[in-house]
Amino acid sequence: MPYPRPPITEAVIEIRVQGPIDREHLDRVQKRALARFPLSEELAHVGLRVEFPTPAAQAKIQHDWAGYKLSNVDRTDFLSIGPNVLNVSRLSPYPGWEAFSLGARQQWDEWKRIVGHQKIVRIGVRYINRIDVPLLERSVIDVEDYLTFHLTLPKIGLPAMTNFTVHARMPLGSDDCQLALNSAATPSPLIGHISFILDLDLSKENEVPQRDEDIWILIERMRDHKNHVFEACITDKARELFSR
């Protein structure tokens, strides 16, 4: 169901390939993407390497080039490319699935045109939602009023929780996908509110489709599954908050 003010803080479509793709090809992808994503930064994984020559050990900070992260000027649309990944993400405000997935598909087409065929090893669709709940005069809030995926404690006279984070991973039961669910309480960026994060990550790593048509049919289906799981994880009281 499209909401007037969807609580999505970030939507992600990710395609991982076996790779590694060489730097020259990624540079070409980056240059082509600059038209839509003019802000570009190079990324590195930073590690510490300790060598043990005699007589003394030496520590060296090691930067491993990890690709590019590009974005539009408003810093809402991001494209991350690395030696084995293409990742498109969108921050709030969410423009709707059609616009988001179309943008992702355009980037994939461009990537494939330059990089050529690569074996796809994982396809992921992830949506991070933040549900901002007004506190009103309350000092305690019942999480189950808003989320159906949450933590429950035994009633043994413990005071209310002050924080929680829950993570679960399971097969989705459809399309041979995996589902990772996270929910957590977090300080709200709004005054007089508390926020709950509901993070849904669907992925497929077995028998991943390799043809473009099949890839995007799968991504569409993953989005439908995501919607189904999201709706099942929230209550009507939560829905009211972003339906107005």
């Binding site: 970030e10 992600v12 930064e41 990324l43 590195a44 990890a66 991350s80 993400s89 994060i197």
Partner: peptide, 12 residues
């Protein structure tokens, strides 16, 4: 729970 837009990689 860190996402790509706020990734843990470091800009060079």
């Amino acid at each position: 729970m860190v996402t790509p837009a706020y990734s843990q990689t470091v800009p060079i």
